[in-house]
Structure formats: C-alpha cells, structure tokens
C-alpha cells in the first residue's frame, strides 16, 4: 500500500523525486483519515516552498488539514484537476489515486539530496502503525 520508491513526511505528504523536480501529494493513509476530499487549496506557480512550512489546505466535507512542504524549492506546476476553475475539476482523484492522478504540486527542489533524509516507506509504515 505504501510505494517503496517514494519518500514521506510525518505529516503524511509524499515526494517523488525526478532529477531536481519533486512531485508532492498526500498519502493513502491521509486521504483515508480525511474522508471525501472536496477541495484542495494550492499555491500559485512560483510560490517559494520552505521545508515544514504551510503550502496549502485540503478540505473534506467535515474537516480541513494543512499541507506542509517536505522540501525547500519553488512550485513549477500544480495539478490542474485540483483547480476549481478547470473543466476537469476532480478533487476525488486524491481519494482514488493519492499517489497517481491525485498528486498536488511539482517543485524545483533546492537540494535534491535532502529528499533522501525524509522517511522511507518502511519508516513511514512504522510511523502510521497503531493509528
């Protein structure tokens, strides 16, 4: 259930690093805890991300949760299906495919090496155990 190739934060974000671009989303565990996701508020392209700092908000019907950046960097793309103005607006993608179609932002990372210091799949699995 927890993809081996990704890195994770304790706040339930995942990172997929390709070169110096990181794709970022929330984990299956997180979407399951939130329930039906109805809206994701994301920053504009160009937004400066700071590790551990807020970059957005994810809303389900009955709760909200803040998104914290796993990396330092700059947003280069946001997932268009999460934009409410888009014809393809589909926040359910985060519930359905949290590691795929439900990705949230792509960022040019300042220090790609720092990503390997995040939790690996095993570390994240033990972090969510008991919940």
């Amino acid at each position: 259930m927890i993809p081996e190739e990704l890195r994770y934060t304790e706040e339930h974000e995942w990172v997929r690093l390709q070169g110096d671009v990181a794709e970022i989303g929330i984990t299956h565990f997180a979407q399951d805890q939130l329930g039906d996701i109805v809206f994701v508020e994301l920053p504009a392209v160009g937004f400066k991300l700071q590790t551990g700092k807020r970059f957005g908000v994810v809303e389900s019907v009955k709760t909200v949760s803040e998104l914290y950046s796993p990396v330092d960097g700059e947003v280069v793309e946001i997932n268009s299906v999460l934009s409410q103005d888009s014809d393809q607006f589909d926040p359910e993608a985060v519930n359905r495919e949290p590691y795929g179609a439900g990705w949230m932002i792509k960022a040019k990372v300042a220090d790609p090496g720092a990503v390997s210091k995040l939790l690996d799949a095993k570390g994240y699995a033990s972090h969510t155990e008991g919940h």
Binding site: D36, V38, F39, E59, V61, F89, P91, E92
Partner: peptide
C-alpha cells in the same frame, strides 16, 4: 449527499 454539494 454533502460530498456532491461541496465538490460541485
């Protein structure tokens, strides 16, 4: 269906 109400 509150999910539908909030999504669309």
């Amino acid at each position: 269906d509150e999910v539908r109400a909030a999504r669309k």
